[in-house]
Design a protein around this nucleic acid. Structure first.
Length: 483
RNA sequence: GCGGCUGUAGUGUAGUGGCCAGCACUUGGGCCUUCCAAGCCCACGACCCGGGUUCGAAUCCCGGCAGCCGCACCA
């Protein structure tokens, strides 16, 4: 199995491993090791560089993981981010209570609280569909609950289930600080927490995970305009719409898409991130439109973007681009009683939100999956050059004093510019293979010719070909490869 | 959460009541070596956790934890 082989490398080489492993670990909790942390940092920095530059009024903020209970009344998570589970007392089968009610009684249970659901199941005498046993109804909220403080002053709080809320809560002040302009973008890269009932699929569904999200607040009257739309008008998006189900992914020019220009602009920039920044093969990427059952009720327009991940059995969600309307700000305005309207040239309104949301952990797994190749002679991780934990490695051909000295000198120079590994142990072949396995794109070897003419060999991970280059030019050459 | 299978160095495995718990790869050190996991020597390193049965448990029993598969769940 490919996923096990990748996981084996990840654990052996220090990309990721189970949290609290010496105590047996815990499902859905993973640590990043030395190499995984480098890779994650690189990915996050690429994301920042690409998305924060899209508008001069986009900024990154950093907000807390813990938020007091009323926040989630405003956001709707207390009411909606849970499932009423009906468990049979005799056969212990479990069912979604809301689905049961809808199927059997043909009425919508939306917005019902636990007592109402319990009452209806009792009144209508709903029984276990499997064995006819009694049903016991419980709420499973997917948020982790905490207590702030102690004793009588204790306050109920929750770990955030998405980074987004931090941006909505900070909106009023940030808008003011950033001089009352729309659109305004608030990005958050950080952790989120969901108490998944049963996290499976290894590294794909986690209980504590990382998100990179950008909340763009804008004037809904201007949704069908973007000042730079002309730049992307002819760009083809790879899409898999609701009508395309069962068919192939299509490529459609932005100008031919039946979506608002503001939305299309950011779709196109997301595709750029995967195809131009990370340089992934385009066949691996697509946007997938969600139907009404799949998307949250507040998302007016919702496309996921997916990568084709062999170890997870096909196209998998890497993130989504969500038009959330004014759902969040209005909810917070209603519960907090703060006025969250903006006043632009005398027009007062609650801005609407376009959310670009990325799951970082699963994106990294996708890169490991797409890069993993088992060749006849070697195992190699063909990671994008800009996220590989090490960009290059420096070796003396042999452990001879004069070669080692020269290699260390070169290492000192290069490592100030690039993430660089130095290695002098074992044979040169073994060192190349070691770097292949952790995805280092370039290896530089100092040999006896180096001592004569100041040239080194530069070896390419993917082709294993070497070229002889001058030390004087090495930084410039490497810089070109990184671009 | 339920059912089935499983758990021995970093990895893959051998060991079914008494073994100094064996092997290979990996890792570290040494010799050798002028470019792709060569060879030789040395070293580090494991019975998932807890309880029980037994003179004696990696091995049998119970519980827990974790993994895989199926069911359920996945805003």
């Amino acid at each position: 199995m490919k996923s096990e082989e990748i996981m084996e490398i990840c654990m052996r080489r220090g990309f990721i491993f189970p949290s609290a492993e010496i105590y047996g670990g815990a499902a859905g909790l993973w640590d990043y090791g030395p190499l995984g942390t480098k890779m994650k940092n690189s990915w996050e920095n690429l994301w920042r560089k690409h998305f924060l530059r899209l508008d001069p009024n986009f900024y990154e903020i950093s907000t807390t993981n813990i938020l007091p209970k009323p926040v989630f009344e405003g956001s709707g998570h207390l009411e909606s981010f849970n499932d009423a589970l009906a468990e049979c007392n005799s056969c212990h089968s479990r069912f979604r209570a809301d689905q049961l009610i809808e199927e059997k009684l043909r009425i919508s249970s939306e917005g019902m609280n636990l007592d109402e659901i319990k009452k209806i199941i009792k009144e209508k005498n709903l029984r276990c569909p499997r064995c006819g046993g009694d049903l016991n109804v419980k709420f499973f909220n997917l948020m982790f609950r905490l207590e702030l403080g102690a004793g009588e002053s204790v306050k109920e709080a929750y770990l955030r289930p998405e980074t987004a809320q931090g941006a909505y809560l900070a909106f009023k002040r940030a808008f003011n600080i950033l001089r009352n302009k729309l659109p305004i973008g608030l990005a958050i890269i950080g952790k989120s927490f969901r108490n998944e009932i049963s996290p499976r699929q290894g590294f794909y569904r986690l209980r504590e995970f990382h998100q990179a999200e950008l909340q763009i607040f804008f004037d809904p009257d201007k949704m069908n305009e973007h000042e730079r739309f002309d730049e992307i008008r002819k760009k083809k998006l790879r899409i898999y719409s609701i009508e395309d189900r069962g068919k192939e992914t299509r490529e459609v020019k932005c100008e031919d898409m039946d979506l608002p220009k503001f939305y299309l602009y950011y779709m196109s920039k997301i595709q750029d991130f995967y195809l131009e920044i990370l340089k992934l093969p385009k066949e691996m990427f697509r946007f997938r439109e969600l139907d009404e059952n799949e998307r949250a009720f507040y998302n007016r327009i919702h496309w996921d973007f997916e990568l084709n991940i062999e170890s997870l059995g096909g196209y998998k969600e890497m993130g989504g681009i969500h038009y959330r309307t004014d759902h969040d700000l209005s909810g917070h305005q209603r519960v907090s009683k703060e006025n969250l309207m903006v006043n632009i040239n005398g027009k007062k309104f609650i801005p609407h939100v376009l959310e670009l949301s990325f799951g970082i952990d699963r994106n990294l797994w996708a890169l490991l999956d797409l890069g993993y190749e088992k060749e006849e002679e070697r195992t190699v991780l063909k990671l994008p050059v800009n996220v590989a934990p090490y960009f290059c490695a420096v070796f003396p051909l042999m452990r001879k004093e004069e070669l080692v000295k020269k290699a260390k000198e070169l290492y000192n120079i290069i490592s100030s510019e690039f993430s660089t590994m130095y290695d002098e142990t074992g044979s040169i072949g073994k060192r190349y293979r070691r770097q292949d396995e952790i995805g280092t794109p370039y290896c530089i070897t100092i040999d006896y010719d180096t001592l004569e003419n100041d040239t080194v060999t530069l070896r390419d991970r993917d082709t294993m070909k070497q070229e002889r280059v001058s030390i004087k030019e090495i930084i410039e050459i490497l810089n070109k490869k990184l671009r």
